[in-house]
Amino acid sequence: MAVRTQSQHGRIRTSSWLLRGASILLVFGLWEWAGTIPVSIAFPRFTDTMSAFVEMLADGTFASAYAETIGPLLVGILLTAVGGLVAGLVMGLSPRAEWLGLPLIIVLQASPSAAIVPLITFLYGIGFAAKVFAVVLLSAPVIVLNSYRGITNTPKSLLEMSDAFLAKRWQRIWKIVLPAGSGLIFAGLRLGLAQGFTGAVLAELLITPTGVGDLITFYRAGADYPYMFAAIFSIILFASVSLTLLQRLEQRIFRPEMRPV
């Protein structure tokens, strides 16, 4: 229970914002300093990177690159979300499916399955489908695993309660099991998206020279390091902003105190 008064709370919040601002200044300052020395000819200054960033933002380079990256990413995540939820549900409810599926998912989740990415070209060429496949490949294990955990982590007391009050099978799943697991399932989608970013970028760097990955490759080949760093900066910024927003949304919808313990 929060026992802090409003003003104390406010003060703590301001000081944490101050620290955060200081921390950003510190990191970018170090970057600028390291670029000025320079630690390497391939390491640009922060200011040069930022001006390249603004330039690419203004002339639409980023817009067209991200249009190519986000499409397959969203399609891949959507496919995996639907498939993963079904797979997790089946594994969570049927002991046979659990026996068959769980070890495979655990192995896949622990393994460097990125190594399969080069093979995708043989099946799906270098287009949209290849990127979707790379996204699915990397994001599926965590999404399936979290759905499964969400489904199986229903507190026993709530299951007994639904039994005692005569819930039918579908009521038990729809009214107890799914709401109880929704927080974990949503968290799985967020983690899956994080993996999906890696999948999309890896596919763009390795097999399909398009999108943000191609920007990075292109500027590296031309030794335009401020532009290369700006492209890398943009994808990390984009990923962390979208993941943070998702996390905020998650905390708002599935507040921890509303989750079963």
């Binding site: 994080a194 890696t198 760097l205 990075i216 990390i236």
Partner: peptide, 10 residues
Amino acid sequence: SSPLTAIVPA
């Protein structure tokens, strides 16, 4: 949670 793969070329 970010796609650090993008840093490897750098």
